[in-house]
Each structure stands twice: as structure tokens, then as C-alpha cells.
Computed example of a mutant assay.
Amino acid sequence: MQIDRIDRHLLRLLQEDAARPVSVLAEAAGISVSACRRRIDRLEAGGVIAARRVALDLRALGFEVQVFLRVTLDKTEPRAFDAFIAEARRIANVQSIETLLGRVDIRMDVVARDLGHYQQIYQERILALPHIADIEALMLVSELKNSEALAI
């Protein structure tokens, strides 16, 4: 799919505010509303725009603790990855699960209301996950930059 200067401009604007009306986007890009709509539809159909999201403030919703877990699995078990991931996906407080190449196999982000709540999740749910050989917890102290925006 060809992406031109106007498409890139629209993508930058949508990254800033995905709910921005098409009329505002069209004006900012210097094109008609119908041309803008067609471009956005083409970018969505082509998979360039994968989704439009609402960003929630975890702290405003009462989640004060965020922990990044680095998990190494017991690779002697042939289905270790599949079994671990299937169970980890069922934990509501796990926000993301990523597989990695290297010493660590899995990275997970866990959110909790407070330290007591995190400890409960960790002891009752995380440690019950299958095939864990090692686990390291890194607690978020402060977030200095968090952007899903791509420099285009």
C-alpha cells in the first residue's frame, strides 16, 4: 500500500486524537471531507490503521501498582509456552503478554489496586501458572514516556 504525505499527516493527527472528526482532519490536511473519509477507509482496509483506542488512566481508576514480570519457562516441557500463555490470558489483571527471544521467555504487565492486591494476584494466580522456571518482578516507580505513536 502506498502511503503519501497526506496519508502520513492524517496518521499523525489520528495518533494524537483518534476521535477527531473527519471534517477537522480534512481541514488540517487540506483536502475535502469525502477525500479524507476515503483515505481513512483505505488505511483501515489496508491494515495501516489497526484500531482506534481509548487510553485509560490506570491511577484514576484506582490501579496504583504496575509490575512488569519477566518469566523464564521450563523448556523441558514441549507445550510449556502454549500452556503458560493459555492460563496467563485468563488473569484479568494481566494487561499484556509478550514472548521474547533471549534469556527471558515472557514479559507480562500486571496492574493492581495496591501492594496487597498485587501480592494476592502474584501468590494466587501468577505463581500458579504452569512451567515457570524463574520469575523476576520489576515494579514501576514512574513513567517518563509512554507513547504508542509512531514517528511517521
Rank of each mutant, 00 (worst) to 15 (best):
N93E: 15
R70L: 15
F84A: 06
A86L: 12
E16D: 13
D17Y: 08
Q119A: 11
E27H: 12
Q119N: 15
L10S: 02
A92L: 12
I31R: 04
A60D: 05
V65S: 01
I91Y: 01
I85A: 06
L115D: 07
D105K: 01
R90C: 14
A55D: 06
G102P: 04
D57K: 12
P130M: 04
G30S: 08
A28Q: 11
Y118V: 07
G30H: 09
C36V: 01
Q66M: 11
D82Y: 10
D57E: 11
E64Y: 10
D82G: 13
A51E: 11
F84H: 11
A51V: 06
V54H: 05
D82N: 10
V54D: 01
T72I: 06
D134R: 06
V48I: 00
V111Y: 05
V24L: 13
I85T: 02
G47L: 01
A83P: 00
D7P: 04
A112W: 02
L14W: 04
I126W: 01
V22D: 03
H131Y: 14
A18R: 08
R53W: 06
A26N: 05
R39Q: 02
A50T: 15
S96F: 15
S23I: 00
D41E: 14
R59E: 07
Q119T: 14
A35T: 06
I49Y: 02
V94Y: 02
R8H: 11
I91L: 09
